[in-house]
């Protein structure tokens, strides 16, 4: 069964088209991440799925049922918000139970689920506190707990980690991944952080300007991007783009090489000098200015020393060269 099917979704605010004919299917139990730069429409798409925003045109199906005109509470979804959105006047218990109470579910069921969810998220000690008495990470867990309580057909996450500090973000990321494994639920997750996308997703949906650029498993997208945007968006430091014609590829406009695929080589075709070195401990990023005046980033594993302005020659394997035409489409 499919958890979600979007057909031809479009959305405009006045004259501004923020989503253009989006088609997408999410399978049962799948973890799908929407990723893209800010303003690409990923959050709007999530809100259309949730029913918080009406699509201007198109069809939303959740669990095989057309929910295009169904209010959010009846769609069988749960959502975790960026700002947590906990009800400030309710306790943790009240926050988590409100949705089920509103749906008039029996007390025993609510109690049972509350117990399970708070155990799963280690929230038992905090059930009678109010949101203002919790730390950021705890609030985030309550927000997730509130979603679990609903036992939804589809979980929606709207940049849930962006308000947490770096250490907590990593922990929570692992927790969400574990949650997905334990619940085996279908999840859609919106983020602009490619690390979250790469580490969490079964499939990634890369969006730009209201259009889906490419859909696929993380490593597929990384190893086999359809276009220059996807190639440049995934990977850090991002892919180097240089003029293809000047470097021996007459059939294409742009040559892309990932920083880690560049090698120092006395016979390499790319000649230039070092302009800056970033030492990160486990690896070293070297910024190189080519004689053609183009900039490249080279990523070396381990620790290296370079003199600034020292000449350097770089090479790469043919299989690691990505070629794109002038419209950014991949040339194979």
């Amino acid at each position: 069964m499919t958890a979600l099917r979007l057909k031809n979704i479009s959305k405009s605010f006045g004259p501004v088209e923020v989503l253009k004919n989006i088609d997408l299917t999410v399978e049962d139990g799948e973890f799908v991440v929407f990723v893209g730069p800010s303003g690409c429409g990923k959050s709007t798409l999530l809100r259309v799925i949730a029913g918080l925003e009406d699509a201007s045109a198109g069809l939303v199906e959740i669990g095989g049922v057309d929910v295009t005109l169904t209010p959010p509470a009846k769609r069988g979804i749960a959502m975790v918000f960026q700002t947590y959105a906990l009800y400030p006047h309710l306790t943790v218990r009240g926050n988590m139970a409100l949705g089920l109470k509103q749906a008039r579910r029996p007390k025993e069921i609510i109690e049972k689920r509350l117990k399970e969810a708070s155990r799963m998220l280690s929230l038992e000690p905090y059930l009678d506190r109010r949101p203002s008495e919790l730390s950021g990470g705890q609030r985030q867990r309550v927000a997730i707990g509130r979603a679990i309580m609903r036992e939804p057909k589809l979980f929606l996450f709207d940049e849930p980690l962006s308000n947490l500090d770096a250490a907590l973000r990593m922990n929570t990321r692992v927790e969400i991944a574990a949650l997905h494994r334990n619940l085996a639920a279908s999840m859609i997750y919106v983020t602009h952080d490619q690390t979250e996308a790469m580490t969490l997703a079964d499939r990634i949906v890369v969006m730009r300007d209201g259009i889906v650029e490419q859909v696929g498993a993380p490593m597929d997208l990384y190893n086999n991007p359809d276009n220059q945007f996807v190639a440049g968006f995934l990977g850090a430091p991002s892919m180097n783009f240089i003029n293809a014609g000047q470097h021996g590829f007459e059939q294409a406009a742009v040559l892309g090489i990932r920083p880690e695929h560049l090698k120092i080589s006395d016979t390499g075709p790319l000649q230039g000098h070092v302009t800056h070195v970033e030492r990160l401990g486990a690896d070293t990023n070297v910024l190189v200015k080519l004689n053609t005046d183009e900039m490249l980033t080279l990523r070396l594993f381990g620790q290296y020393d370079f003199e600034i302005d020292a000449p350097i020659r770089l090479g790469y394997a043919m299989k690691d060269a990505f070629l794109f035409d002038e419209n950014g489409h991949r040339v194979k």
Partner: peptide, 13 residues
């Protein structure tokens, strides 16, 4: 209704 001008196939509440 819905708050936008695009043609929607069905009538919104």
């Amino acid at each position: 209704h819905g708050g936008n001008m695009q043609t929607t196939v069905r009538k919104q509440r």
